[in-house]
């Protein structure tokens, strides 16, 4: 009786622990900001519950046995060593659990891979060690810039105090409008990099000589930060990705200003010739 209450108690405390973890983002994925990120978040929570249930069932049995079936308590060993029925059941049950897990995952995979009919397309190119962006289609078409780490080296060398966005800040952010389907086309100039923004639920390798694509639709305005997620050499840890999501009106102003600035640059270039 006593060990039963021990098992129950430990189960309840584990549940409490996990629910408290689900609250603070420190113990979980960042708050999802797109449909896909939300699905990933929810599936992860669901899987954690399934795993926890199996964990408690299996180790409940095992620790009960460890407590009770001891030589030091004078427990005499039984001598059974197989049971086809039991073995059949515990092969079938995991199969059913896996099917339940695979069904929502399959739907999300199909949705993630559907990069068709985007509202705008941006090409991201990985360089050692920064990102280049070209707005290829949609509002802002023609915008093109590089995006580099803007954290001062003094902070990295511990000569200055580190800011809140230490290593997650860039000189030029990727700006996109809220609620629009943005297709990101990826490639790389030298080695493989990976473009990852956790809050938007996307990560895709950028492979030199090949084109890959992915997409997101941001739910609300804000600044979302990520990092290169494929080892790309010395400064792999120093090429962050910052996406700024704006309301449609603000975005139009930003895009116009960018295009205007590059037009001025081009005309000056022509006059100088």
């Amino acid at each position: 009786m006593r060990s039963k209450s021990v098992v129950t108690l430990s189960g309840i405390s584990a549940l409490a622990l996990y629910s408290s973890m689900a609250v603070g983002s420190k113990y979980n994925f960042p708050e999802p900001q797109s449909v896909i990120a939300r699905e990933i978040y929810d599936q992860h929570i669901m899987l954690m519950w399934v795993c926890l249930a199996i964990f408690i069932a299996v180790f409940g049995v095992m620790f009960y046995s460890i407590l009770k079936h001891r030589k030091s308590l004078g427990y005499k060993a039984a001598n059974f060593h197989h049971s086809t029925a039991v073995e059949f059941i515990w092969t079938i049950i995991p199969c059913i659990i896996l099917i339940v897990m695979a069904y929502p995952a399959t739907k999300t995979v199909i949705a993630m891979k559907d990069t068709s009919s985007p509202d705008m397309t941006i090409k991201a190119t990985g360089y050692q060690w920064m990102w280049g962006y070209d707005y290829l289609q949609g509002e802002g078409e023609g915008i093109s810039f590089y995006s580099k780490l803007s954290t001062p080296p003094a902070q990295v060398e511990n000569k200055a105090p580190k800011g809140e966005n230490y290593l997650l800040e860039v000189d030029n952010r990727v700006v996109v409008p809220v609620g629009k389907k943005v297709r990101i086309i990826l490639t790389a100039n030298d080695v493989i990099h990976a473009w990852w923004v956790p809050a938007l639920g996307i990560k895709q390798d950028a492979v030199p000589g090949f084109i890959r694509d992915t997409w997101f639709t941001a739910d609300k305005p804000g600044v979302y930060r990520g990092q290169c997620a494929e080892l790309c050499g010395k400064d792999h840890g120093f090429m962050p990705i910052v996406v700024e999501v704006m309301e449609a009106g603000e975005y139009s102003k930003w895009a116009a200003a960018q295009l205007n600035a590059s037009a001025v640059k081009t005309s000056m270039h022509v006059e100088n010739k």
Binding site: I40, Q43, H44, C51, T108, P198, K203
Partner: peptide, 15 residues
């Protein structure tokens, strides 16, 4: 098993 689920692996791969 969690890493095997493609959508979740997209988030946790290389972390």
């Amino acid at each position: 098993v969690i890493c095997a689920i493609v959508p979740i692996d997209i988030q946790v791969q290389d972390t």
